[in-house]
Design a protein around this nucleic acid. Structure first.
Lengths: 335, 335
DNA sequence: GTGAAAGCGCTAACAC
DNA sequence: GTGTTAGCGCTTTCAC
């Protein structure tokens, strides 16, 4: 049977309160008393029951992280950062994956597990503002590209600016026919941010943003990128560069390009988004937008914890994390 | 303020117990009563406090998964499977990463968070048997390649057999000088299983297991594989095949091979281990041992839950999950 | 500085 | 079928 505070108290011949004081490092305990209690704790092998503590304090020390999919290394790398950031505040992370499905995302927000987590960090894909009409039962922070007009903090990089920088880089290389891979198929959202950045930068450069060079995908994996690239090539449109929604799509495209005998970057330059490790080790390393994952994670955790301490946000904060464009072979050529 | 069972009870004009019965779907409640209580629940927006429930029941509904690193897609993919497997039993997953460091692994086992989790699934790297001398405070299941003589279930594929199959495949291709990439540098463990499989199969085929063709690495990432491959090539040993400890190392090696102008598989055939998605989309797709991640995850969760229901294991079970060798371009040649 | 007692929200005897 | 009550292990006033 497990040993409780009470057991320690009677073993040490003191009251529960005193033991509690020792356990919680309260100041007003005499050193002698502290030593005596500590001895009992050690002998009995006492360990505090966190569930009970949490019930009492109203906090669990757990924050949930709900991501579309762990299989995508970007999210996996981000999850690792969140775990670290949370650990710095003595918080642990409960992991969910929603599959990017609206029902799952809604469920997670509306208090699924609400009483066992202190807060939620969510990276939504399909979630709509309506799904969040009623206030989330715990502090909530949103991550990622989707934007909502809701009173929740939202942390992301400036997707439009980042996309523009990627396209600008391609244009500077002399490319003119720049495809976009990874527009969402069948989503209501009119133009997501990275696609908008692609369009804006092309417009700004006086080039045409040719919709025939926009390839939609069902998902965001390698296979989706490969399929989209193949479709574009099969359609016979001229193109000399590709800007992909993310690295996985870009890498899928790279594969098809090589199968078709097209050289990267000579024939087609490619830029991805996310800077996943995998992009640094292909036959052609991938130029990519590199979001500052560590600071995204840190800010997300801090947002949750500050909401926990203070009043719930009336006003959403839109926080932009940093990013850089990392130049690699897919736009530079081999050394 | 949050609404509790008591609030619902007084609102509906019934006792707490009745509300509890409704919430927990107990059989003996009249439909009329059930409807009335449900109405109050809905109006008040009641949601059960899981912490309190768990304190009472002694279970939290949470199982921890401690992995070396999420950045490695194998672990990320495995984590996703564990989340799914746990969900089928209405369990959720608390994620940890240990960084493969012994102190972290020990901490996790010895009850770090023990009172808030019902069980632990751990994939150890550096952990030694001594670190587990005193019984873990919750049901524990071990995953992965490390083997211990301890009373805990251990789930993995048959690493020796799988490695032998990989090497056998290489030999069948006519390769004779088969390198092993990814032996652990500076670890006490004399021969880990995949290395042993490499050696055994070479012996069985009457070939020499040349230790000069064994390249140690510090870690298990792309960069480690690239460095090891480069070292081997620089040393000038003749080799016509590579068997890597995992896919990431193999992919790093692939990169170096291509930089050096060596063709895969014509000059050097390569086999990896893990079958991560990434290996299916490189310029050269990667032949790999594919562990049945879903069943590993399922068995791990089931082991924890069965220990929770029954008596703690006196006898460890060593469970082997299935695997297959997936043939791809790195040993087959382009189509 | 230390002790006694209340109560966090829930479940499960047991009584009605 | 439904109500009453004790108590899971802890923290926290409030006395002493």
């Amino acid at each position: 049977m497990r040993v409780s505070l009470k057991d320690v108290a009677s073993h040490a011949g003191v009251s529960i309160k005193t033991v509690s004081n020792v356990v919680n490092d309260q100041p007003h305990v005499t050193p002698a008393m502290r030593a005596r209690v500590q001895k009992s704790i050690d002998e009995l092998g006492y360990r505090p029951n966190l569930t009970a503590r949490h019930l009492r304090k109203g906090r669990t020390g757990i924050v949930a992280l709900a991501l579309p999919e762990l299989g995508n290394p970007y999210f996996a790398e981000l999850a690792a950062e969140v775990v670290d950031a949370a650990a710095e505040h003595d918080y642990t992370v409960l992991l969910d994956h929603t599959g990017g499905r609206r029902d799952q995302e809604t469920l997670v927000c509306q208090g699924f597990r609400s009483r066992v987590i202190d807060g939620l960090i969510l990276s939504p894909i399909e979630l709509e503002a309506d799904d969040l009409r009623e206030r989330a039962p715990v502090p909530l922070v949103l991550l990622g590209e989707r934007e909502y007009d809701l009173p929740y903090d939202h942390i992301s990089i400036d997707n439009v600016a980042a996309a523009r920088e990627a396209v600008r880089h391609l244009i500077a290389l002399g490319r003119r026919d720049i495809a976009f891979l990874g527009a969402r198929r069948g989503r209501s959202q009119p133009a997501h941010l990275r696609l908008r950045g692609w369009r804006e930068e092309l417009d700004a450069a006086g080039l045409v943003a040719d919709d025939r060079l926009v390839a939609a995908t069902d998902g965001w994996g390698h296979a989706d990128g490969a399929a989209a690239m193949a479709r574009l090539l099969d359609a016979g449109h001229r193109l000399d560069a590709v800007f992909a929604y993310n690295d996985l799509i870009a890498i899928g495209a790279l594969r098809v390009l090589s199968e078709r005998g097209l050289r990267v970057p000579e024939d087609v330059a490619v830029v991805g988004f996310d800077d996943v490790v995998e992009g640094r080790f292909g036959a052609v390393t991938l130029t990519s937008i590199s979001p500052d994952k560590a600071s995204i994670a840190r800010m997300a955790v801090e947002s949750v914890l500050s909401q926990l301490d203070g009043v719930p946000r009336q006003q959403a904060r839109r926080i932009h994390a940093g990013y850089t464009l990392v130049h690699r072979e897919s736009t530079l050529g081999h050394d």
